[in-house]
Nucleic acid binder design. Structure first.
Length: 121
RNA sequence: UUAGAAGAUCGGAUGGCUGCGGCAGCAAUGUCGAGGAAAGUCCGGGCUUCAUGGAAAAACGGUGCCGGCUAACGGCCGGGGGGCGAGAGCCUACGGACAGUGCAACAGAGAGCAAACCGCCUAUUUAUAGGUAAGGGUGAAAGGGUGCGGUAAGAGCGCACCGCGUGACCGGUAACGGAAGCGGCAUGGUAAACCCCACCGGAAGCAAGACCGAAUAGGAACACAUUUACGCGCUUUUCCACGCUGUGUUCGGGUUGGUCGCUAGAGCGUAUUGGUAACGAUACGCGGAGAUGAAUAGCCAUCGCCCCUUUUGGGGAGACAGAACCCGGCUUACAGAUCUUCUUAUACU
């Protein structure tokens, strides 16, 4: 089920704060137990991905880092095949992200992507 | 063995598959990759920039027994005083109250150059006057304590012992300790209240700052000429020195992106050696994260740890917590494990 190295290279990371804000404003959003996904179209035709774990989720920096790492691991497995070109994705961590089993977390992401695709039509 | 005290160390290990960041390499690949507190940002430095340089004073902030260590400190080590404990030990903002100002509710007669409510004593007389601080009462606190003498009753009024003040002299680098003698006892507490004294301190921080490439004011540098004065020059004042003006030429700033700053530093380890110790000296060895929406992850196996039942076995937990320019400390958090030294009680010998 692991994505190949080539596929993972197609993912570009979102770094600017302004990009995060525009995606959050104009994009669509779907919530699951393990994580939240936000999607918006972009102009350059690539798949782009960003991660957000705020201090609201957990005050400990160690736990926030671990949540971000798990989100990154899930995204690396699912998104190269599950995501579409020309779209921006933001994965938002939740308290459940820390303790949910890995397979369930993957299912959460797949479910969110499916729902968002239906919603777009 | 019981109950403690002090100090130090560790903070799971190994491997596989799929991945991440730095470096090397054309590539394959190789190699390195979080902590004892990385935390809080409370001190002290290095480094960088800003202000024209120096001296003195004031203001503001900090430190506060003594000696030593250190680049430095509010840190550490050793010592002294005071307090706590049976002890090993632990705690300690621990300079100054004859420089000045202030503060202490209520109660009480009286609370800071003491006072006289009840009482006691004396006189005249049945209410005053004087003496007194033993006893009572109030209070957090009532101006030495006990005993004897003394007296009208009393009182350091006198004496002894204790306490207090002062203290020749002795020990110690010092803080301080000991102490003959003298003083009849007085100048209560509070300075994490203002304050005084001694010592220390310019300010802001790697989003500092430097460079490169792209669009507008103040401006900056260089050359020449000229004037020396009001005022201005990064807390204020004073003193001394210095600068300021005009013209021309050249360059070009607030923001964003990239590169550098960026990790070898008061570095770590071992041995010898000086020192009670903190720490210093010498020799040899080591080379160890540098990200910038920010790298250590996901899954699994074995060993170890804890709990349950015990024949095999099954299940569970894994603390506090994530480098962001770098060091030296402090403070706070921490499952569990190990080692060393010491005290106490009991037993054994």
């Amino acid at each position: 089920m692991h994505a190949s190295k080539e596929q993972q290279d197609s993912l570009i990371q979102i770094k600017k704060r302004s990009d995060f804000l525009t995606i959050q404003n104009k994009g669509r959003k779907w919530v699951s137990h393990g994580l939240i996904v936000q999607v918006a179209e972009n102009e350059n035709g690539h798949k782009r991905i960003g991660y957000t774990v705020s201090k609201k989720v957990d005050k400990s920096a160690v736990k926030r880092n671990r949540i971000k790492r798990r989100l990154r691991a899930v995204a690396a497995d699912i998104l190269p095949t599950g995501a579409k070109d020309g779209q921006d994705y933001i994965l938002v961590g939740r308290p459940q992200t820390l303790i949910r089993p890995y397979e369930t977390l993957c299912d959460d992401l797949r479910w969110c992507l499916k729902k968002l695709e239906l919603d777009a039509q």
